[in-house]
């Protein structure tokens, strides 16, 4: 850590700003996390393991992480495409489409969940056509993925947009002049350059999905062992006054998320090696 005293700085006082940052992080992030950890420490290891290894808890955790991963992946592909189209092409209504991307940010997730559930229900606007084809969007695991994809989309698009705007078109032209086909240019130049941004968007969408609650409650149906997500199980345990059970599951959510995010971060360092 380097003191900034000798340099001109727009914000006054390195000590003051750092102190404030620490205080803020402490109150907002560290204390709640520490409280959770302390609460978990009250449990004996055996007790903890028993609480989180019930088949119901395992099914819920698997669904949460699995569906979040799939949703983040879907967003990585289609969100990238959407960002590309928004940055690269000028078409009528582009600004409207651009504004629509922020919708999932602003919409209360419960409203989103309700809307999606009624759309995909057997008699809904979409369900009417999809259910006869064998696709059940409401009250299924697919519904969970749909809702998580919805809430994660803006993270992907908004992360990639500035990167794509900085991506010079010259580079593509240079590759073409050297004889490279479009596919080759995409695979060897565009994709590797965008990968760090895609990973950042993926991380954000994934983290958001793991913590998502409001929209899932309505679309999944919350069937234990099938469509019940871990955050919902935490709420159930709380309602049963089973604080230990709730804490144990919450800690697993926290630790696994942390490990996955750390893993992605490592991957990102590698993907971004050419910028360091």
């Amino acid at each position: 850590m380097r003191s900034a005293e000798r340099h001109f700085s727009a914000l006054p006082g390195f000590r003051f700003t750092l102190g404030y940052t620490m205080f803020y992080l402490g109150v907002i992030v560290v204390i709640p996390m520490a409280a959770l950890a302390l609460k978990a420490l009250e449990l004996s290891p055996g007790e903890f393991f028993r609480l989180v290894s019930t088949p119901r808890a395992i099914a819920a955790l698997q669904l949460t992480f699995g569906a979040s991963f799939v949703a983040a992946f879907v967003n990585a592909v289609f969100g990238t495409l959407l960002a590309w189209v928004l940055v690269r092409y000028e078409f009528p209504g582009r600004r409207w489409v651009d504004a629509l991307v922020d919708f999932p940010f602003a919409l209360p997730t419960a409203v989103a969940g309700l809307t999606l559930a009624s759309l995909f229900a057997e008699n809904g606007w979409l369900g009417r056509f999809l259910v006869p084809l064998g696709f059940h969007g409401a009250f299924t695991r697919a519904g969970v993925v749909i809702a998580l994809t919805f809430v994660g989309l803006p993270f992907m698009v908004r992360t990639l947009q500035p990167m794509l705007e900085n991506f010079e078109r010259d580079v593509e032209e240079a590759a073409a002049i050297l004889g490279a086909s479009r596919l080759r240019t995409f695979l060897t130049i565009i994709a590797p350059t965008l990968l760090p941004g895609v990973l950042t968007g993926f991380t954000l969408a994934f983290a958001r999905a793991v913590g998502e609650y409001g929209s899932i409650v309505f679309i999944s149906g919350n069937l234990p062992f099938r469509t019940e997500i871990a955050p919902f199980l935490v709420v159930i345990r709380l309602e049963e006054y089973d604080y230990n059970g709730a804490t144990a599951i919450a800690v697993v959510l926290l630790v696994v998320s942390f490990l996955i995010l750390a893993g992605i971060n490592k991957l990102q360092l590698w993907a971004n090696r050419f910028n360091r």
Binding site: E168, D170, V171, E173, A174, A175, I177, T188, I189, P192, T193, F274, N275
Partner: peptide
């Protein structure tokens, strides 16, 4: 053709 862009347009993900 060999083309040198004003901005050089190097592939920044490559050595």
């Amino acid at each position: 053709i060999g083309f040198v862009f004003q901005s050089y347009a190097l592939f920044k993900n490559m050595t």
